[in-house]
Design a protein around this nucleic acid. Structure first.
Lengths: 199, 199
DNA sequence: GGATCGATGTATCGGCACGATACATCCGGT
DNA sequence: ACCGGATGTATCGTGCCGATACATCGATCC
């Protein structure tokens, strides 16, 4: 998930870790920030896989030869996406299977980079997500209906709130889907259809 | 977090892993189930710490001596809470600091076991949680206000939805807090004050 | 002028939870 | 007689987290 997000951000311009973290927090919505304990290992993995490349300016050359041994003295490390990385991102961005929407975090990242995603793929991801969340809602309603007299007030309240959240998410997704369909319908009427420019 | 939850469930009666998983899923609200990959290690940790004890019936004695080597042949393992475990649970249940409400999962577990929690502790946890979520909401509103013209429709929508969720959670918590305060006020008027049974 | 504090910046460590997987038992339906 | 699904225990690799350490730089304070 993190790797997807990093590739997406580097799509725009090279960055170093600190910036990536902030951008990611901004894009993912303030909540759900990312920790360095996952960020730096992820960068290493990506670099090892050849999907990103680091440009390490290493200002060490400025130091006199009697610099304090080899302790510390880090330079900023700027990461840029490679051609392979772009390929990989294109693959990830066009996924329509459960791996795109089953996990909340992954879905969030997909949504965050929807401007890089084809319209039909967008629709399928949104619909997939809605089905997933609907199933969650139904399971929750079921379990609530069956067990509600055995639960105390607090547990009940917790589940009621959870159910409400899930329900709202379904409605939110439905709005997005409808709006997406409207766009598609409108696009079909205009003289600029997606891929058939002969008229 | 898991350890807290396990101790809480075993408070009622001994169980084996499978049951714990189901109970936990039921209590935590269907979403947020727990995986065996975390459950069994957690049980081991708890046992190593002496907080729970396993009663392993090992029905191996019924087997003839020529049983198929030592492959497989597991018995049900029933776990029960120990005296130390009860102490530990009592400690956990009376926590009022950030560790009780900063993390969503931990807060959920605390709430799930509120019937074991003193009224004043309940109130402090709920208020703490509300402050945490309010801060999240404010940060999110801030970031949204500052960056909204630089975000595309989808990222914006994602954050709007997130903000709405957080906002609803604050209101939900406020309801719980109010109701909790009502209870406290009512309790103060009745002839059954909490710990002063002399009149 | 120097001290100090917060933002910027890179990096590691232990711990915890996850999904996938394997394996075994038992029971009900076909 | 068989077979699938619920029950049940357990491990493995992976990924993310919080805490922590360390270093630089500008601004503000005394």
């Amino acid at each position: 998930m993190l790797e997807f997000a990093i590739l997406g951000l580097l799509q725009q311009s090279p960055m170093h870790g600190y910036e990536l973290r902030k951008e990611l927090a901004a894009v993912l919505g303030g909540l759900r920030s990312i920790s360095y304990g996952s960020l730096y290992p992820a960068l290493k993995r990506l670099q090892a896989a050849g999907l990103i490349a680091s440009d390490d300016p290493t200002p060490r050359s400025l130091l006199p030869a009697d610099a304090p041994a080899l302790t510390g003295r880090r330079g900023k490390v700027v990461y840029a996406i490679t051609a392979e990385g772009k390929e990989r991102f294109a693959d990830l961005v066009s996924q329509t299977g459960p791996e795109a929407y089953d996990d909340e975090g992954r879905f969030g990242v997909h949504l965050a980079f929807f401007r890089h995603t084809a319209a039909d793929v967008r629709l399928r991801i949104l619909e997939g997500r809605r089905r997933t969340v609907e199933r969650q809602r139904d399971r929750l309603m079921d379990s609530l209906r069956r067990t509600q007299e055995k639960l105390d007030r607090y547990t009940l309240e917790l589940q009621r709130h959870g159910l409400d959240s899930v329900d709202r998410e379904v409605r939110w997704l439905t709005e997005l889907i409808d709006s997406e369909r409207d766009d598609a319908a409108r696009a079909e009427q205009t003289p600029t259809p997606p891929n058939d420019g002969t008229t």
